[in-house]
Amino acid sequence: MTEQELIQGCKKQKQAYQKMLFDKYAGRMMALCNRYCTDKQRAQDILQDGFIRVFQYIDQFREEGSLEGWMRKIFVGVALREISREKIKYRELDQGFESEKSVEPDAVSRLTESEIHALIRSMPTGYRTVFNLHVIEGYSHEEIAGLLGIEASTSRVQLMKAKKHLQALLVKKNRMIGHEQHI
């Protein structure tokens, strides 16, 4: 079945097509939810609410872009609404990380998707949210500012700190990998 047929079936609110859509995208959307929300139960709630919204508003999908991209926007919106319930602290960069050392792209390439995913999830909520929105989803700082209700400059600062934080985590991770290889 083509994606076009899948979309049309979902627009007709046929449950079989909705199930197929769910099966196709649930894994990726679950990963998205887990990236924004570390609590598993809440991530599942985001997943469910996201799919309900997708089925509810799929009539508005004009098929000008990819379905997955459109769905991601919906899921991001639901996730942001969910995490907005907790107070996000855009805190200062922790001093314990070694942010001065650079990370080679090869070192990152060697990491699996799960390891990358785990690194992102290990970031504080504020950093993680801005990092996810800017780096993964491709939102501009102005858009992020609008989504989170913060200043664009705050978003930039948070992103910068998030990157340093991630680099530190990557360095730490590489050291551990190197240590394991030496052993």
């Binding site: 649930a26 894994g27 679950m30 990963a31 599942q44 990491l111 995913h117």
Partner: peptide
């Protein structure tokens, strides 16, 4: 490195709870 991170993150698929679909149907 962020392009690599983005690519890997977008390819990541997590396990979906078994009752997710039934919960969605019930909620709808």
């Amino acid at each position: 490195i962020y392009d690599i991170i983005k690519e890997k993150a977008l390819q990541q698929e997590d396990a979906v709870p078994a009752d997710a679909w039934s919960n969605i149907v019930e909620k709808r």
